[in-house]
Design a protein around this nucleic acid. Structure first.
Lengths: 255, 255
DNA sequence: CAGTGGTCTAGACCACATC
DNA sequence: ATGTGGTCTAGACCACTGA
């Protein structure tokens, strides 16, 4: 039976039933009981399995849906959300070139290699200094113009053989690849935006002068269990801007 | 009776009952039936008034709560959210100095005056060129160091006598002032972040060299009815960064 | 067609804030 | 003590999808 611990007699002081049920469902998703794109049991089936009313099961599933972990479709059923469904329009990729509305940039891989985590990387990733990581350099362009230079780092303990796999696939979507190749779901990211000065590598790749100002976005990608799995630094030419919207009908929860 | 149109026999094809009820509640908030901080009728009272079940009324109110228009407190009741409740930790103010977690900056008003909207301002505000607006300059500092130079513009047709009122109050929170002095609620903003070069005024105020790179955040503030009421440009010294979090438990809906 | 999620109802009990 | 929102139940009907 898939419910290891009876959610009805847990915790002290006990959380609401639907909350415990939700946590258990997350545990099962994390364990890989259902893969992204796969159908989850129906409301009534889950209600029966957990011994709760449909309304309660519904509330648990509903919360997973607003967190975009799960996709509900009337008549079809509920599926585990795939990376592209989770990150719909601009959720993750908020960089735009000039006035263009399209966030679409071509991607070119510049390098993919295994390395050892620096002190800063180790701290940010929550691993020991010197642990194995994979470093990736990508360049995004707009109409043939270099626009965004990305440096990524992922934990090799979570993504074994990442260098080879990434080098081979050169995926347009990093999160889809993490999902398909390593069963890692990244439902949550934190970003900081600031001004940076171009170093020599930036200058070379982006065709700008060393020391010229760039827009820098630093990102930490969190896995379902809360661990940081990915670090990303994006340095963009000054004509690129970062856009964000806060509040309003149907905006997701803020951290 | 406060329900002008019977929400039960509306629209074609008709939206769900709870959605129509929600829209009607928004209409009443917009009309000012209840002021920020004031108690809204209870679930059961509203259910009775609209002739729906408590569960349905509940769903309508619940949606207003996730949009932060309304604040629900068990044992107390439901109130119209005040500006500071709506913009809780960092929802609107996402600029930080260096590594400090606190987004707290002192505020100093530099100038407040009436003016005519430029072509760009008029377009962004959805008003005619040359319409009356109020322009405000503020400086935010961190530990006595100039950090963020803000230029604001608000529509004077919506905020009559704004120049005098703002000059008089010099409010720390602009949105709280809009709410209290003009009954305008701003539940939604859009922001763009980019690199800018310091002009002469920036240089003078922020104590940097003309032409040196700054972090610029441009913001449009939307009123409840969807109109743009406020334009804001924030130019910050390079040690300031903009932070954002996407997804995860209890993140608001993304635009 | 059977099965899904979406809406809606009517009731119960509870934890909590206020007076 | 009263009234609030929060949880939970058990049912009904509907719109839609897919075989």
């Amino acid at each position: 039976m898939s419910v290891d611990t009876d959610i009805r007699k847990a915790d002290r002081p006990s959380k609401p039933l639907y909350a415990r049920m939700k946590e258990d469902l997350v545990r099962r998703i994390l364990r890989g009981d259902w893969r992204p794109g796969e159908l989850v049991p129906s409301e009534t089936a889950l209600a029966q399995e957990y011994g709760v009313s449909v309304g309660t099961a519904r509330k648990a599933i509903e919360e997973l849906a607003v967190e975009r972990l799960v996709l509900r479709q009337r008549g079809r059923g509920t599926t585990i959300a795939k990376a592209d469904e989770r990150s719909k329009p601009f959720r993750f990729y908020r960089l735009h070139y000039g006035n263009s509305v399209q966030p679409i940039f071509s991607v070119k891989y510049l390098s993919v290699k295994s390395a050892r985590a620096s002190a800063a990387e180790a701290r940010a990733l929550g691993i020991a200094r010197g642990s194995a990581i994979t470093r990736v350099e990508r360049l995004r362009g707009h109409d043939g113009i270099p626009a965004v230079f990305e440096r990524l780092a992922v934990r090799e303990d979570l993504c074994p053989d990442a260098a080879a796999i990434i080098g081979d696939l050169q995926p347009a979507s990093f999160y889809t690849m993490l999902e398909r190749s390593f069963h890692i779901i990244v439902p949550h990211v934190k970003e900081q935006v600031q001004v940076a000065m171009a170093d020599e590598r930036d200058a070379e790749v982006l065709k700008v002068a060393v020391g010229s100002p760039l827009l820098e976005v630093t990102r930490q990608g969190y896995a379902l269990n809360g661990e940081v799995v990915e670090l990303r630094q994006m340095r963009a030419v000054p004509s690129v801007h970062y856009s964000n919207t806060i509040g309003g009908p149907s905006s997701p929860p803020a951290g």
